[in-house]
Amino acid sequence: MRVVHYLNQFFGGVGGEEKAGTSLEVHSGALGPGRVLEQALGEGFQVVQTLVCGDNYAVENMDELSVRVLEMVRSAKADLFVAGPCFNAGRYGVAAGALCAAVQAELGIPAVTAMVPENPGVDLYRQELYIVDSGSNVAAMRDVVARMAHISLKLVRQEPIGRPSEEGYISRGILRDELVERTAAARMADMVLAKANEEPFESELPVTVFPPVPAPPPVRDMSRAIIAVVTDGGLVPLGNPDHIPLSAATIWGSYSVAGIDNLEGGNYEVAHRGYDTRHVLEDPNRLVPLDVLRELERAGVIGKLYEEFLSTSGLGNPLGNSRRLGREMAQKLKGVVDAVILTST
């Protein structure tokens, strides 16, 4: 079996942060962690090629890199693609996730990576990939690579993959039916007892966790600040020009309020099926408080109201999707506005 392995500049032995701009280099055979990987995969597996790329170069040229890596993996006639482990290196994790997802989707061969659950690469790619939980201890490389090899072997042999806790990968958010001996009541009673006795137990319905985001510094001088309004209440101009779906929206819109002092009822509609929208339709300022923000702008309380408001429908959205919408909005507003007022229904 032929394996292609991806490493960043550090693990590929090119250098540290000063070499993060290095573009893609191709080595034949295994390099560094790839040697451990080859051993762990065992007989019949050979790392035929190692691709090494600087972290900055990778994330700044992701599309181009993907195309080149796909070409290499294809011409190497690989049966398996492995990237990392990336531990808590964020750019490395994002690149490894993107490349694994591309290889898996385009070439139809298994792809495996590893990183810590907090790595941004996890948020982006855990639904489509098996990402082994690497922990943050680089000294545990051998163990991490062994777990990557374990899942890789199962994928190559098309064997069923067990639960995340059994196999050591990060939950992909997939629910699967299972036949069990004991009723829900009995299982629940066991869990309560285990909890009371401070013994370990595994919930069957893990609660979604939201890692805390540190608060950005406050606005120092409001009288000079540019303020934008973002809403998940679905306010859009009449006719919903961007066709924002009324639930599980995959897109958002940005609408000009230049020269407008007051949002008039007849000019807007609401792309949201999750609340009684009559009050907002009657007076959209109840959702996007343009009228008072204009007054505060004139009075010099705020520096300037941003010339557009951003809107989407926050209803029944899968978390991954909502996060992407947020990232896209942030990309538009970063460096342009000083703060955001987010109104939610």
Partner: peptide
């Protein structure tokens, strides 16, 4: 948006 460094205040019931 806060991950990108933009301070946000959320108004919601």
């Amino acid at each position: 948006m806060e991950k990108a460094g933009i301070p946000v205040v959320q108004i919601t019931a």
